[in-house]
């Protein structure tokens, strides 16, 4: 699948999503271009996952719009979803099925073939365990299978929520290298959520700071580390500024 030229991979305009308990995200504006690797950085419960869920259509926005390659996720879901591969929260897997069968189910709807299943299994180093039931998988293996599902069919936009969660050091480095390679070689856009500034700093070219449901800043990682010694310092400065405290 190739991205459409001149159209942003994601355009979120004035998006608000409020849950019944009053929490959620407010007035989010975000644009991702093809080839961008954007990190959503914020503490747990800040609204990173909610933004992702609205973009992939798992949640309905209370207000505002979300478009993927020019297609509204609300009005034109199927056209938008063809471009999306996602890993949101814990991987959504059928535990009574093997890794291969999980992928085959998704491949059937995505129109992907056997070669693609073999390719993504090899990418996440699960080819040896293809016929094993997911119920027997470790946390890291489930996470890798979730990544394989997201990569199936080579979608133009990958929305990954804490993609290295549960992975060992080697696995974390592999995932990071894979993301960088796919963005550089194929122009895939990535939206990655993490509460680890170091992870975002190493992987992403842009960062969106999310705090208590608000987008505090959206800048390039290079700009953020120019303004502060590290991305972590930049994040803390933005949060303190929001609270009306000291500014770096």
């Amino acid at each position: 699948m190739t991205e459409m030229t001149g159209v942003p991979a994601v355009r979120v305009s004035n998006m608000t999503k409020l849950y019944k308990n009053g929490r959620g995200v407010k007035n989010i504006d975000l644009t991702l271009e093809p080839g961008d690797i954007v990190g959503l950085l914020g503490p747990n419960g800040s609204g990173k996952t909610t933004i992702m869920k609205v973009i992939v259509g798992l949640c309905h926005a209370t207000d505002g719009t979300a478009e993927v390659f020019g297609h509204s996720i609300e009005r034109d879901y199927e056209a938008a979803a063809k471009h999306i591969g996602a890993l949101i929260e814990s991987p959504a897997l059928y535990y009574n099925l093997s890794a291969e069968k999980n992928l085959r189910l998704a491949a059937r709807v995505r129109g992907a073939g056997d070669e693609d299943i073999a390719r993504v299994l090899a990418l996440v180093r699960l080819d040896r365990y293809a016929r094993d039931k997911v119920a027997r998988f470790s946390l890291g293996m489930k996470q890798r299978l979730g990544l394989a599902l997201a990569l199936l069919g080579s979608p133009d936009l990958l929305v990954l929520d804490e993609p290295t969660n549960g992975l060992d050091i080697e696995g974390t480095v592999e995932v990071r290298e894979l993301i960088l390679r796919l963005a550089a070689e194929r122009g895939h856009a990535f939206l990655i959520a993490s509460h680890l500034a170091s992870e975002i700093e190493r992987t992403c070219n842009k960062v969106a700071i999310i705090h208590e449901g608000e987008l505090l800043s959206f800048v390039s990682v290079a700009e953020a580390v120019r303004r502060a010694p590290t991305l972590e310092d930049y994040f803390l400065a933005e949060v303190r500024q929001k609270r009306g405290g000291a500014v770096i």
Binding site: L58, E78, A81, I84, I88, E89, A92, N102, A106, R110
Partner: peptide, 15 residues
């Protein structure tokens, strides 16, 4: 309950 419904809803088929 087990969250696997997301697997169906993340595919390019409408709800």
């Amino acid at each position: 309950q087990d969250g696997s419904l997301r697997a169906s809803l993340l595919l390019p088929a409408s709800r």
